[in-house]
């Protein structure tokens, strides 16, 4: 494709993006309107279903801002690229008419520094609280195991000296059960293993829900 043709195509894409930004902004207004009407109609009511509906629409409102911010970012990136392809032609002029919504903070200025510094800073300068997001230290264990090609899961059962199959305590450095306390330890360890599996499942579920709620 000739350069002129590429530039023409990209200008058309910018046109489509800007139309989409306009439509998405209209949608944002409609959602705000819908919320206001619903809140008015429900004044004083505190019904679970109605509250759920309001909650979903509020989520749509912030999602709308995020989507507009993505479109604005795409438009600006295209403008910068067009300026490189066709400097001074005006094709890369940024559209200052686009009213940036409150999602503007997502379109951040490019940082300066080495590549590793920039990536590191971007990763750690997030608003969320890391401790809160990763409440469970077991996540480190899980991810380290994933990245270890030789790692094998520890056995959950072993055989004692009298030939009985007994559960293994999986906590690091935990004492192994002896023959004298097989009965109580087998029960206790079994509970521990089941509880551990449930916890892992809960963590995964929470992580998925967290991702979906983004």
């Amino acid at each position: 494709m000739a350069l002129g043709e590429v530039v023409a195509q990209l200008i058309a894409v910018r046109g489509a993006i800007q139309t989409a930004i306009g439509l998405t902004a209209n949608a944002a207004d409609e959602v705000t309107d819908a919320l206001a009407k619903a809140e008015d109609a429900l004044a004083g009511a505190n019904h679970d279903l109605a509250m759920e509906g309001l909650g979903l629409w509020r989520r749509a409102q912030s999602g709308d801002e995020f989507t507009v911010a993505k479109l604005v970012a795409a438009d600006e990136a295209l403008a910068e690229y067009l300026e490189i392809l066709s400097p001074g032609s005006g094709a890369g002029t940024k559209n200052t008419d686009i009213a940036k919504p409150s999602g503007e903070e997502l379109v951040k200025a490019r940082p300066t520094g080495s590549r590793s510094q920039n990536l590191f800073r971007t990763m750690v300068q997030r608003d969320n609280d890391i401790d809160d997001a990763m409440k469970d230290l077991g996540k480190h264990q899980k991810f380290l195991e994933i990245s270890d090609p030789d790692w094998e899961p520890p056995p959950t059962y072993t055989t004692n000296e009298v030939g009985h199959r007994i559960p293994v305590m999986t906590a690091p450095d935990a004492p192994q059960p002896d023959a004298a306390s097989i009965g109580s330890l087998a029960v206790a360890s079994g509970i521990l293993i089941v509880a551990g599996a449930k916890k892992a499942k809960d963590i995964t579920k929470t992580a998925i829900e967290h991702w979906r709620s983004k």
Binding site: A16, I17, T19, A20, I21, L23, T24, N26, A27, A28, E30, V31, D33, A34, L35, A36, K37, A38, D40, A41, L42, A45, W57, A60, D64, L71
Partner: peptide, 27 residues
């Protein structure tokens, strides 16, 4: 009054869906 208010809100939400659908098609 509640029903009418909710219906009006749903109309606005429907208009928002239509606008989003249009934006999606453009992209």
């Amino acid at each position: 009054e509640v029903r009418d208010g909710i219906r009006a809100a749903q109309d606005s939400a429907q208009a928002a869906v239509a606008a989003l659908d249009g934006a999606r098609s453009e992209i």
